[in-house]
Design a protein around this nucleic acid. Sequence first.
DNA 1: AACTTGACGTGAC
DNA 2: AGTCACGCCAAGT
Length: 112
Amino acid sequence: MNVRDAVFAVVGRIPPGKVLSYGHVADLVDGVRVTPLTVGRIMATADADAPWHRVMARDGELVIARRSPRLAELQKIRLLSEGVAFDGEGRVRMDLHTWHPGGTLFDDMEGD
DNA sequence: AACTTGACGTGAC
DNA sequence: AGTCACGCCAAGT
C-alpha cells in the first residue's frame, strides 16, 4: 500500500457534502505515517476522478487558490453543488461540514 | 534507474 | 505573530 493509495482511500470515503482538512485526512490514514503536507502533495496529483475538492486547509481555505484560481473556482463550484456552505471570506464552513468517519449513517446530520 | 526539484499543512515553540 | 520541525511524495531530467 503506497501512501498515495492510503490517502486516496480516505479521501474517496468522504461522502458528498462533507469535507476534511489535510491534517484530518493525514490523521485518518492508518498503517502509514503521513503529514498534512504529504496529503497536500498527493492531493496535488489527484486524478479528476477523485473527490479532491472535499479536502482543504483546516481553516477552510481552498489552498489550491494560491496556485490555480481556476481550479479553486472549480472546487468551489463542486462543493456548492454538494450543498457545502461558505463563509463571507470564501472559506468552507468546516464547523458545519467536517466529516466524522466511523460513523455512521448520520454523517449527514451534523450539518443541521 | 538514480538524482534533483517542486510542492495544496499544521501544531508547537 | 513569525519561525521551525515533522510523518516526504511525485514528476521531470
